[in-house]
Amino acid sequence: MNQDPLIIAGRTFRSRLWVGTGKYQNFEETRKAIEASGADVVTVSVRRVNITDNKSENLLDYLDPKKYTILPNTAGCYTVEDAVRYSRLARAAGVSDLVKLEVIGDERTLFPDTAGLIEAAKILIAEGFVVLPYTNDDPIVAKKLADIGCPAVMPLAAPIGSGLGIRNPYNLKIIMETVNVPVIVDAGVGTASDAALAMEYGADAVLMNTAIAGAKDPLMMATAMRYAVDAGRLAYKAGRIPRKLYATASSPIEGML
C-alpha cells in the first residue's frame, strides 16, 4: 500500500486508517492499539492539565511525533466561538496548523452543526489553519466546505460511537463524486466490514476510535481494521464486477461429454 499514499494539503500519509486515542484503559494500551492499526494520523483532544496530580503522565510521551501526525480535534465544542478557541489552543499546544474541526449540534446524536461548522472553518482557514471538518453525510455541505478551502472533508458514517456502520452509502458516494478533495469517512464504524465497505465505495481514508477502543480486544480489532481498510482500498482500485441477476458459468461448456 506504500505505492498508494494519501496526500492532503501537501502532506503525505502512509496509512488510510486514522485513529482516535480516546476511551482506552491506559496510555500503554493506546500506544499498542495505534501501533497495531498501522495508522500514522492520530486524533487527540485539548483539555485542562491536571495540576493537582503532578505524577499524571502526558499522552505525548507515548506518541512519537516523528512517527505520528497529531491531529487535534475540537470535540465537545458546541459553538463556533468554542471551536475556534480550542483550535487556537491546539495550535499553541502542538506544532502544526492541522485541526479536525467539530462543531457539535446536539448532545444526544453528536451530529455536527453544519452551519456553525462552515462559519468556524472560514475563520480558521483565514488564520492559516488546515481544517479537516467533521461533517454530516450531506453533499451540499461537503461541497461548501471544500469550496471555502478545506483540503479534505470528513463525513460521518453514523453517529459517533454508535457502531451502526454506513447509514447512507448513496450520500457518501455522491459526496465522493461531488468534491475534488479527499473524503475521510469519520465516525460510526462498528466492525471491519464497515471500514472495508467505506473504502470500497471510494473513501480516501477512514477515521475511527470507539470501534477499536471499545472492542473486547482492542489490539486484535486494530489489526482487523488495518486489513479491512487495505482490503477495501485494493478492491476499490481493482474494480469490482458488475452485479447481475442471473448466473454466468465460470467453467467452459466446451469439452463436456
Binding site: V19, G20, T21, G22, K23, Y24, F27, T30, T43, V44, S45, V46, R47, R48, V49, I51, N58, L59, L60, I70, P72, N73, A75, G76, L89, A90, A92, A93, G94, E102, I104, L110, I160, G161, A187, L207, M208, N209, T210, A213
Partner: peptide
C-alpha cells in the same frame, strides 16, 4: 511558547494550562 520565559503573571490573572489528552470522539 516563546513568551513563557518573560511573561509575568499579575494579581487576579486567570490562567488556563491545557494539553493533549486521548480523544477521537467527545465523551
Amino acid at each position: 511558547r516563546e513568551d513563557f520565559l518573560t511573561w509575568n503573571l499579575h494579581d487576579g490573572d486567570k490562567v488556563e494550562v491545557l494539553s493533549f489528552i486521548g480523544g477521537g470522539c467527545p465523551t
